[in-house]
């Protein structure tokens, strides 16, 4: 397999997996786990939750691979699943934050557990710190946030983004333009604070 796997495209691997070859699935996991994590992490800004979402995405690939048809690129298909799961998770997290604030009594205290998770903000050096950039991304409205991450972090083409989000290329272009300007504005505001 090691020698064979080099020549297989993602689409060929899915086909093999659909035919029952579990090694093809493992190869797809290896190819996509970090790419998906980067996308979801920028979206949720939580390593633990992001890893869970990636696990769910790859579980979905395992259970629903038969639903994939070779009319779309595999990467587009898997990113669509990840984007949908990430959106649901973000909604859930927001709800939970609201509930936890409401349910906190006077004696309740929130303890921050020291985490060994990877923190990109630690490595910042330039004008805008990564923490600031991530903060600005978090503040972006969802419609801009997704396109910005897919375009700037994942470096996907307009066409791929349009397929993942199910919107026209014109809308993608417009959202990228407005999203970038919004991000710039937010960063300026954060810097001034």
């Amino acid at each position: 397999m090691d020698r064979e796997k080099i020549k297989y495209t993602d689409e060929e691997l899915v086909k093999r997996f659909q035919e029952g070859d579990e090694r093809a699935y493992i190869e797809l996991v290896k190819r996509y786990k970090d790419r998906l994590l980067n996308f979801v992490y920028r979206y949720l800004n939580s390593f633990e939750q992001s890893e869970d979402v990636v696990q769910d995405t790859l579980m979905k690939l395992y259970t629903s691979a038969h639903m994939y048809r070779e009319i779309a690129k595999f990467s587009t298909w898997i990113f669509t699943i990840a984007a949908n799961l990430a959106k649901s998770e973000l909604r859930r997290l927001k709800r939970r934050r609201v509930i936890s604030i409401h349910s906190m009594g006077f004696d309740d205290k929130e303890y921050e557990i020291p985490s060994e998770d990877y923190d990109p903000a630690k490595e910042t050096t330039s004008n805008y710190g990564e923490k600031q950039i991530q903060q600005a991304i978090d503040t972006l409205p969802d419609q801009f946030k997704t396109v910005i991450i897919l375009r700037e972090v994942q470096q996907l083409s307009y066409e791929e983004i349009s397929q993942i989000l199910g919107i026209s290329i014109g809308t993608v272009k417009s959202r990228i333009n407005r999203g970038r300007l919004r991000l710039q504005k937010l960063l300026k505001e954060l810097k001034e604070q």
Partner: peptide
């Protein structure tokens, strides 16, 4: 400069026991 920073943000890796 913001976009260049965005594209060069360090990438995360899944933990070793992920698979």
């Amino acid at each position: 400069s913001i976009l260049s920073k965005l594209s060069s943000m360090p990438t995360c890796k899944t933990r070793s026991d992920f698979e």
